[in-house]
Design a protein around this nucleic acid. Structure first.
Length: 480
RNA sequence: GGCCUCUUCGUCUAACGGUUAGGACACAUGGUUCUCAACCAUGCAACAGGAGUUCGACUCUCCUAGAGGCUACCA
């Protein structure tokens, strides 16, 4: 047993962004790989963005993909509570410490003043930054204004000069100029801390050893380090994962399509595919293997395989993985997975397994099941009789071939009505009469499916059953 | 505007400073096949540009360019 501890710390905003899934996944894998603990902490300090049931939903999706936690709001733990709005008194205590050390200060500037200030700065091509107007107020003045009921925030007092060096596990040392840092807000005017403050306090208190987060946090890293220094705490290790980009290289956002795990779940992507696909965005194994189950990743994952450059989300590769994992399913599993996507939910289980078997090799996602197997459930096939004609055959030849096959199939006993038996009978007939396979099978297949492209005639006939198959052949024969 | 990060096939990515720059997806062709899919085989395709360091640079340094991120009392 060691004391490695990592956390996933999302804001409960409703859905799980695909980028967050990967952040959670990497964190989970590192924790598992190092034999440590994985903790869920809910960062709900922005009440404006609060969404009902968000935590339950989040937990559902994460458990769907197979990620679970050792500690968190749903199961407690030695560092409870794990929801930031339940920890407000803790932050009060720590901000007071900073105030006492003169490393933070009250700021009474109004939102309007700040906005005006920023507008002026940008107009003058200056970096928009708080002008530190309240940084050096006297203690008496601060007390007086608080007593008068003035609203205030608490800001971090940054050093004015010098260099701040930080270390990222993937990129090495990065240095920032203190003069580029803003005195950012630690406690908002409603007394609730910002991410920047709550996050650091909680990571320390919860004894997090490796902070894993997205690349978008790199710019605030020096401020975080300064906060650790202000408290006299030893910072954990930091790993900033490169971002996932959209097809055009921009930020993955709602506007260009699906960005939430729930979207993919609804469309019929399997958790195995999502996990396998996501883990390969910025990570590779030593031996170049690319097919990985979550279970295998638990031991195979290695932080050394992480890269530092952003990755474009390629849905075609996701489709490949999804098709691959669909093909790995047993018919029973696949039937269960497909059932919610069927318009007719009352389909018999064994029948459904046969139907699903026809589509398995052709599916990219579960929702494809409808389009792929519509022809099976169709009351009456609707297709042009010209489709029945194979290559140079005439319409008469096609009908004659179909009649011959009908004759053979009529004689097949119900008990023998299966793919293997039908295939053996029909192929034997064709061979012994020295005919071409295509001249018979194409018309038969079209008669049974009404489609240009479809699964083979024997498996379709098997699924359809004797009566339905013969009806469909009869329909083909009656076509003009 | 400022700061930070990133840069190998279309995409995801390999390559102790020495390889015909490898694999996967996609694509193409062939095989298998009545069609499609699946499967198998083959092929196509990349070191952003420029200086250095070095006997030798995809790999180290610097510059340029491009891309992305951050620049809120959002996370």
């Amino acid at each position: 047993m060691n004391n490695i501890r990592l956390r996933f710390a999302p804001s409960p905003t409703g859905f799980l962004h695909i980028g967050n899934l990967r952040t959670a996944l990497f964190g989970y894998l590192i924790a598992q790989n190092l034999g440590g603990k994985f903790i869920l902490r809910i960062e709900d300090t922005d009440q404006k963005r609060e969404v009902n049931d968000a935590v339950d939903k989040l937990l559902n999706v994460l458990s769907w993909v197979g990620i679970d936690f050792d500690e968190g709001p749903h199961r407690g733990g030695p560092f409870a509570p794990y929801t930031q709005t339940e920890r407000l008194d803790i932050y009060q205590k720590y901000i007071q410490e900073l105030l006492d050390k003169d490393l933070a200060y009250h700021c009474f500037c109004s939102a309007e003043r700040l906005e005006e200030m920023r507008e002026k700065q940008t107009a003058n091509k200056l970096a928009p930054r708080y002008d530190r107007a309240c940084r050096d107020l006297t203690r008496e003045e601060v007390e007086k204004r608080i007593a008068q009921g003035e609203k205030y925030v608490i800001r971090q007092k940054m050093p004015l000069t010098g260099e701040i060096k930080v270390y990222d596990e993937l990129r090495g040392e990065i240095s920032f100029q203190a003069s580029d840092l803003e005195d950012h807000v630690l406690i908002k005017s409603d007394g609730v801390p910002t991410y920047q403050f709550a996050n650091i306090v909680d990571d320390h208190l919860m004894e997090i050893t490796h902070v894993t987060r997205g690349d978008e946090w790199l710019p605030s890293y020096p401020k975080n380090i300064l906060l650790y220094q202000a408290f006299g705490w030893t910072p954990p290790k930091f790993i900033h994962f490169p971002l996932i980009l959209n097809q055009t290289g921009g930020k993955l956002s709602k506007r260009q399509g699906d960005v939430f795990v729930e979207d993919y779940q609804a469309k019929g992507y399997l958790p195995e595919a999502l996990i396998n696909f996501c883990v390969l965005l910025g990570w590779h194994s030593k031996d170049g293997k690319e097919i990985y189950s979550l279970k295998e990743l638990l031991t195979a994952f290695d932080i050394k395989g992480l890269g530092s450059s952003p990755a474009i989300f390629d849905s075609e590769k996701l489709d490949f993985f999804n098709g691959y994992y669909i093909r790995q399913k047993t018919l029973t599993e696949l039937a269960d997975l497909c059932r919610p996507y069927l318009s007719d939910i009352s389909v018999d289980q064994t029948y459904l397994e046969k139907v699903v078997g026809l589509a398995q090799d052709r599916m990219k996602k579960l929702s494809d099941i409808n389009e792929l197997t519509d022809f099976i459930f169709a009351e009456k096939l609707d297709y042009d009789s010209s489709l029945l004609i194979w290559k140079a055959l005439t319409a008469e030849e096609v009908k004659s071939n179909l009649s011959e096959l009908k004759g053979i199939m009529e004689k097949v006993e119900d008990i023998n009505w299966n793919k293997t038996y039908l295939e053996a009978q029909i192929i034997e007939y064709i061979k012994t009469n020295d005919k071409k396979v295509g001249d018979y099978l194409w018309p038969l297949r079209v008669a049974l499916t009404g489609l240009k492209n479809s699964p083979g005639p024997f498996e379709v006939a098997d699924t359809l059953g004797k009566e339905q198959s013969l009806n469909r052949i009869e329909l083909a024969l009656s076509k003009k």
